[in-house]
């Protein structure tokens, strides 16, 4: 009798946990079915600040897939010098390098990176201490962009600039 009573309590506990999980999943599903904004790179460059923290679909041409690990790629629009970084999420372990040159549509969360003098100083310090060639191509790019960042901050009239990128990309499709 005691064992039966204990079993009933455990079952009741598990049942209530299951129900709570189902309720949470239903709430999440409701959130996901809200319409996801679709943008191209050119529009994103002008409106990214409105979507920070939100999931969007972004279409652009893949300019570059990171050669080390392939967890990042860069999308370009009509201006090849304005690139949007896309980081893969848990479901996409890495991007296929053959995507370079393809037009793709990625789905992910918009993030904002605030670049101020403190950030630039940390970046410089990190590059001085890191002699690894693992991301030599990225390091070279960072070095050439530091000067550009400082110039942009000065031109903005504020003490920082914002760079917007996509993270947690767990879905993408090749458009062309």
């Amino acid at each position: 009798m005691k064992k039966l009573f204990l079993l009933m309590i455990i079952s009741a506990f598990l049942f209530s946990c299951g129900n709570n999980e189902n309720k949470t999943k239903k709430e999440q599903t409701n959130q996901v079915t809200q319409e996801i904004v679709k943008l191209n790179v050119d529009t994103f460059l002008t409106k990214a600040s409105e979507y920070v923290g939100k999931e969007i679909e972004l279409t652009g041409t893949v300019n570059h897939v990171c050669k080390h690990g392939a967890k990042r790629l860069k999308l370009m629009g009509t201006d090849p010098e304005e690139l949007i970084k896309v980081e893969s999420g848990d479901k996409i372990e890495k991007f296929d390098v053959s995507l370079e040159g393809n037009e793709v549509c990625v789905k992910g969360i918009v993030k904002e990176l605030i670049i101020d003098e403190e950030y630039i100083a940390q970046l410089e310090s990190k590059m001085k201490n890191d002699d690894s060639k693992e991301h030599a191509d990225d390091h070279h790019e960072d070095l050439s962009k530091i000067k550009e960042m400082r110039a942009k901050i000065k031109a903005s009239g504020t003490d920082h600039i914002s760079i917007y990128y996509i993270t947690d990309c767990n879905e993408y499709k090749v458009v062309e």
Binding site: T61, V65, M76, P80, E81, V97, S98, L99, E100, G101, N102
Partner: peptide, 24 residues
């Protein structure tokens, strides 16, 4: 041939189709 664009003035970049890889 896959696609082409001009990354900078006086520079042409052509993306190539490469089996199981990429090229430019």
């Amino acid at each position: 041939y896959k696609k082409y664009y001009f990354p900078k003035k006086n520079t042409l970049k052509i993306f190539l189709k490469v089996s199981h890889g990429s090229g430019s």
